[in-house]
Design a protein around this nucleic acid. Structure first.
Length: 274
DNA sequence: CGGCGGTCCTGTCAGC
DNA sequence: TGCTGACAGGACCGCC
């Protein structure tokens, strides 16, 4: 579910609410996610102070005082919510609950269990199997037209799959890929190596614009995405093409089309985009 | 190595 | 109402 703007929103919310708090208890209710949750998660974290939350791609990195970093991914359906009081019951799919000395609790809930929770010593995070291979952060200055043009050069994969490939560019998921391609007037089915420098420049600017605007709106809630305080995002009201098949394009009134690429839905205007 | 398709899992919704 | 199949914000793995 969450793409970069949603993870960024969650991360910022947790920063506000939980930095400086001490973990008093960790309840792991099931361990069998996409990647097995470490059995010793509780003993590694109990007594530790939460120092910081950082985002790397769609991963949340929680830095603890004891030289430990918890690496969290929310998969398609995960949430990471902080409650201001201990609850008396568990919700369905509440897999891990972190009780803090402030009386708050942070709950990792993931119905589809595509997410993951890992622990690394701080110095090993960069080399972690999942973190090491991640591509460039799209909101960093280094990500500009020439950088994308180099990525596209000689790659025949369709441009939508390329910008969604986290080994090349992190954080762009199925929603923001379609929205960025619409803004930059590029068809999602184009081969990456067919884009010229101007098109790469336009696409970079569109990706940055869409992601920044979505962060400002607290992300996009289609079904179950919620922020760390349990609220919905509202960028979905600003979609131009995602989920809009059969509706008129905001620019030209042509019907927005939907196709399947790499087993994922893509949405575009066949008149505005080329 | 690059690219593609299948797969993990549960919930929801459309259609019959 | 109940069943069935398609589909969902991600990404890994194995195959060509």
């Amino acid at each position: 579910m969450p793409e970069l703007p949603e993870v960024e929103t969650i991360c910022n919310g947790l920063k506000q609410a939980a930095i400086g708090k001490i973990v008093e208890e960790v309840l792991a209710r099931r361990f069998d996610l996409r990647v097995e949750i470490p059995r010793n998660l509780p003993e590694m974290l109990v007594g530790q102070e939460i120092l910081d939350f950082k985002r790397r791609g769609k991963y949340i990195l929680v830095n603890f005082s004891g030289n430990k970093t918890m690496i969290v991914h929310l998969g398609m359906s995960g949430s990471f919510v902080i409650y201001n009081n201990f609850r008396n019951s568990f919700a369905k799919h509440d897999h891990v609950i972190f009780k803090l000395n402030s009386g708050q609790e942070i709950v990792f809930n993931d119905p589809r269990r595509f997410g993951l929770i890992l622990i690394e010593d701080d110095e090993n995070v960069v080399g972690n199997k999942f973190i090491a291979k991640l591509g460039i952060e799209p909101l960093e200055d280094e990500f500009e037209g020439a950088y994308l043009f180099n990525l596209c050069n000689k790659r025949k994969v369709n441009i939508k799959a390329l910008i969604m490939n986290a080994n090349l560019i992190v954080g762009v998921g199925n929603i923001y890929a379609s929205e960025s391609l619409f803004l930059s007037k590029i068809l999602p089915i184009r081969n990456a190596d067919s884009l010229n420098k101007n098109e790469c420049e336009a696409l970079v600017l569109a990706i940055k614009e869409v992601l920044r605007a979505a962060i400002k709106s607290g992300g996009s809630t289609l079904r179950d995405y919620i922020t760390s305080s349990g609220e919905k995002g509202y960028f979905q009201h600003n979609f131009n093409v995602y989920g809009k098949q059969g509706q008129p394009c905001v620019n030209c009134q042509n019907m927005i089309e939907k196709i399947i690429q790499n087993n994922r839905s893509s949405f575009y205007c066949g008149n505005c985009q080329e």
